[in-house]
Amino acid sequence: MRPSAGLLGVLLALAVLVSGLVQSTASKRCTQEENVRLLQGVVFHLGLSDLALSTEARYTRHPAISDSVVVSMDHPGAIDHFPSTFFWAPIRR
């Protein structure tokens, strides 16, 4: 086999691998669909506004309903949370 054919084969194999991964993730998403509906139900009934990704303070647990200044005052263990130590301006609504 000539090297160029080998290379094209490898590239093709990688492309197939990518599409396989995408496919399997897509089917994972399908199986999650039911769970998402369950989650949506809980969100609806409890009136939740945020995900529990990181739960340390109002500005991490509930970024959506926190003030932009709460970073400065909220967490019991937070010492250095003044806006001046932040690189970016708070999110504009």
Binding site: V36, L39, Q40, V43, G47, L48, D50, L51, L53, A64
Partner: peptide, 17 residues
Amino acid sequence: ALTEAAQRILATAPDIT
């Protein structure tokens, strides 16, 4: 993945708080 999960899951969040 995270953005999309948030968009989907929070689609039923209260209309107004």
